[in-house]
């Protein structure tokens, strides 16, 4: 039987705002299939997003959903996860949202190994605002604020996340929808901070300026230029120019923040019981 996407979407919110040919829908479908494989109830899943095209995802999905301010989704998600660790908290964000205005939250959530899964839709551009360059725009590509070509180098997103301490990091593209789903599934199974970079296409404001106006031309590009990590390891930097290295970049078993906090809290409560065993109420809880 075909996968029942209807189970997870909110029909009342359609039609969605994405352009014809946008790759975001492929990422959302991969995410939904991965969640379905987890066997979670919709009530225990929280999807938190920031601002931008991809961040509209939260409204379309039938979970507990939160569409926050620009760049801050991970920080909102941190509060939710700590307040109720039983919730499965997924962050949906874009390259501008997560790497520029929200870059600080991304690296710190990775550093503290906060138990969140981030799906970073990388379309290499600020699409919603009209095609300005983002921290993921490749050099020499055109953008509305880079009319002579982008002169800044982009972030290597997976290396950034891995370097900051994420336990699971992977990259795939909208051409590799099954691989993308599998990576998301693996990430959802991990405790601690996991991040999936989903390379997605924006034909409208990116493709138009960069000689890829037809959505299919992106898919052809992804097919031709994606290199599995294992193969990339044997290639020179020159050979890798313009390539998209896909695969799992980090997969380590490391205790997540929530578990560490819980252990610390137990210690704090044990100290309290020991110290105030005689029944006098400890300082700090007089009003309780």
């Amino acid at each position: 039987m075909a996968f029942q996407y209807e189970t997870y979407i909110r029909p009342s919110t359609f039609p969605h705002i994405w352009c014809p040919g946008c790759g975001n829908g492929i990422v959302v479908k991969a995410l939904v299939r991965a969640i379905d494989r987890m066997g979670w109830s919709k009530d225990e899943v929280v999807v938190v997003s920031g601002i931008g095209c991809s961040s509209r995802t939260s409204g379309y999905l039938d979970f507990n959903t939160l569409h926050t301010t620009h760049g801050r989704a991970i920080a909102f998600a941190t509060g939710i996860k700590m307040a109720n660790p039983a919730l499965k908290v997924i962050v949906v964000t874009g390259d501008g949202d997560a790497l520029a205005i929200g870059g600080n939250h991304l690296i710190h959530a990775a550093r503290r190994n906060m138990d969140l899964t981030v799906i970073l839709f990388n379309n290499e551009i600020y699409a919603m605002t009209g095609g300005q360059y983002s921290p993921a725009t490749p050099e020499e590509k055109m953008a509305s604020t880079a009319p002579y070509g982008q002169i800044e180098p982009p972030f290597d997103i997976v290396r950034l996340a891995e370097g900051a301490g994420a336990t699971f990091v992977a990259r795939s593209t909208v051409f590799h929808a099954v691989q993308l789903e599998n990576y998301i599934f693996k990430a959802l199974n991990r405790s601690g901070f996991s991040l999936i970079e989903a390379v997605t296409n924006c034909p409208t404001v990116y493709g138009r300026r960069n000689r890829m106006p037809i959505p299919a031309s992106f898919h052809a590009y992804y097919k031709k230029n994606s290199v599995p990590l294992e193969k990339a390891a044997k290639m020179s930097a020159e050979e890798l120019t313009g390539k998209i290295v896909t695969g799992i970049f980090a997969d380590v078993d490391k205790i997540g923040f929530i578990e560490r906090y819980s252990r610390m809290s137990e210690r704090a409560q044990a100290v309290r019981k020991k110290r105030y065993i005689k029944g006098s109420s400890p300082k700090g809880e007089v009003g309780n």
Partner: peptide, 24 residues
């Protein structure tokens, strides 16, 4: 932590405000 509550020192002021809204 002694009363089963959560404390976190966030990376900045903006994140702190975001986190308390999330927790609420």
């Amino acid at each position: 932590p002694r009363v089963g509550g959560n404390f976190i020192q966030m990376e900045d002021e903006i994140a702190s405000m975001a986190a308390i809204i999330g927790a609420s």
